Amino acid sequence: MIKKKNNIFACLLVIIFGFTLFYLGTDGFRAFTSETARVNRLIDVKPRFPNVTFEDSKGRKYSISEFKGKYVFITFLYTSCTTVCPQLEMNMSKVYGKIPSKYMGKEVVFLSISFDPARDDPTTLEKYRGYFNSDGETWRMARIKNPAELNALLKAFGVIVIPDENGNFAHNSAFYLVDKKGSLVDVLDYKKIDQAAKKLIDILDKEAGKES
């Protein structure tokens, strides 16, 4: 009888311990994967876009203040990527095509940021943008040459970039939305094109309603 009670008690301890680990590991049951938990934390914290200097495909240099007063829809990539990046940018292009022209460039800009600045110089970025119908203005492609600035941005936005010995990178991919004040307000699944476009349009429509 005593042995049976001990077994029951031991089982309860295991269940409670496992429950606690699951709660912590899923960010309070909001996430079933570490990636989802990471995204939830980013959205909760809403990190500010750090002070970096972009150099875009036109060779122009500026900071995030270039887009002050506008939403910025962002991807992170490198042009030598042959796996996820082409699909990421193609999906970016599809979202871009769904945004009403009245908002484009006035209320929102699209920005693809390379984390491989040594190879992705303005000439390379200029060629690459042509594959996805980026106009270089309302949708720009840029690099951040300063390693410390680049790393600060990647860290702030939870972008994981791991180089290998062949010059490639393992990295996570998503759409990142920065608000008019320069804070990250959402991280969206890049595979869900319609959902991402709808969310962005809803935000822009709401903003337009406030101003009218």
Rank of each mutant, 00 (worst) to 15 (best):
L77E: 04
L77H: 06
Y78S: 05
T79S: 15
S80V: 02
V84N: 06
C85M: 06
C85S: 06
C85H: 01
P86Y: 01
Q87F: 12
Q87T: 15
L88F: 01
E89K: 02
E89M: 13
E89V: 04
E89T: 07
M92I: 00
S93T: 09
K94T: 03
V95W: 05
G97W: 01
I99P: 04
I99T: 05
I99M: 06
P100A: 12
S101A: 14
G105D: 10
G105E: 08
E107P: 00
V108W: 03
V108A: 10
F110W: 05
L111S: 04
L111K: 02
S112T: 13
F115W: 04
D116M: 06
D116T: 03
P117E: 07
A118S: 11
R119Y: 15
D120F: 03
D121S: 09
D121F: 09
D121K: 15
D121L: 15
P122L: 12
P122R: 08
T124S: 14
T124P: 09
E126R: 15
Y128L: 07
Y128G: 03
Y128W: 10
Y128T: 06
R129D: 00
G130K: 14
Y131M: 11
N133K: 11
N133V: 02
D135V: 06
D135P: 01
E137R: 09
T138V: 11
T138L: 07
R140D: 03
R140F: 00
R143Q: 09
I144S: 08
K145H: 01
K145T: 13
N146G: 09
N146V: 09
N146P: 06
P147I: 10
A148D: 15
L150F: 03
N151E: 15
L153G: 08
L154R: 09
L154D: 08
L154A: 10
A156V: 11
G158T: 05
G158D: 07
